[in-house]
């Protein structure tokens, strides 16, 4: 079994996921990432898989290769996510299905497979991704907010189911951050949203990394089933 701490980051090609991968690599982790398309990131300690997080067979193949390679998994960051920002009256069902498959089923599937590997090593950390759209009940994001509410529920239930294996399960809920995910949202809508936060500014990658680091710290072994929102949203 490898001596190096090993993390799996989903949705690793760009945005927050890509930043998290670079941050973990800089902190000395070995990182496996996945996303539907190939990654341009080249690093001795990075392996990228082209896998859709809702594809069960692909997930099993991916985790098997981690098991046979590093033989351990210390952290899973369920970052892959898509949004379908539209009024409910104008949201097609295949868009709803895509959002649920990626955000909910992807988080469930990767958590399940990761837990099998982590419990062998005596424990691990799972960090999920919610959003402030859940507590804010943001209009225009019904499917997305509902999918992330499901992720929060998974976080709490899995925290209980995996607790006895030494695995913690928590979630971070970012405010809007300037990535492709929100590029299609009109500026005045973003401004309106920020004005409802206690700290009315866009989030930065570092704000997310800070919360993820907190969940991953050895000292956080007694923190599980929690959702931490950024920007003073509650």
């Amino acid at each position: 079994m490898s001596e190096q701490r090993t993390a799996m980051v989903t949705g690793a090609r760009k945005g927050i996921g890509r930043h998290l991968v670079e941050h973990l690599l800089a902190s000395g982790w070995h990182v496996t990432g996945c996303s539907r398309k190939a990654s341009e990131l080249r690093h001795d300690n990075y392996t990228h898989f082209e896998a859709d997080v809702s594809d069960e067979k692909a997930a099993k193949t991916l985790f098997k290769s981690i098991r046979k390679g590093a033989g351990r998994l210390d952290a899973l960051i369920n970052n892959a996510g898509i949004a379908g920002m539209n009024h409910a009256l104008l949201t097609p069902m295949d868009a709803v299905e895509r959002v649920l498959r990626t955000n909910v089923m992807g988080t469930f599937l990767y958590s399940r497979e990761a837990a099998k590997l982590m419990k062998r090593g005596g424990g691990g950390r799972i960090v999920n991704f919610s959003t402030v759209a859940v507590p804010m009940a943001l209009e225009g994001e019904a499917a997305y907010a509902a999918s992330k509410a499901a992720v929060e529920s998974l976080t709490r239930v899995l925290a209980r189911e995996f607790g006895s294996f030494g695995i913690t399960v928590n979630a971070v809920g970012p405010t809007p951050i300037d990535t492709d995910l929100i590029r299609a949202v009109p500026e005045d809508k973003i401004r309106g949203l920020l004005s409802r936060q206690a700290l009315p500014r866009l989030g930065e990658y570092a704000d997310v990394t800070n919360v993820v680091d907190f969940f991953l710290r050895p000292e956080s072994a007694f923190v599980t089933g929690q959702v931490i929102y950024l920007g003073g949203v509650s």
Binding site: K60, K64, R67, K116, R120
Partner: peptide, 9 residues
């Protein structure tokens, strides 16, 4: 869960 891993391996 453990058996599944063993079989697949």
């Amino acid at each position: 869960a453990d058996l599944e891993e063993q079989v697949n391996d």
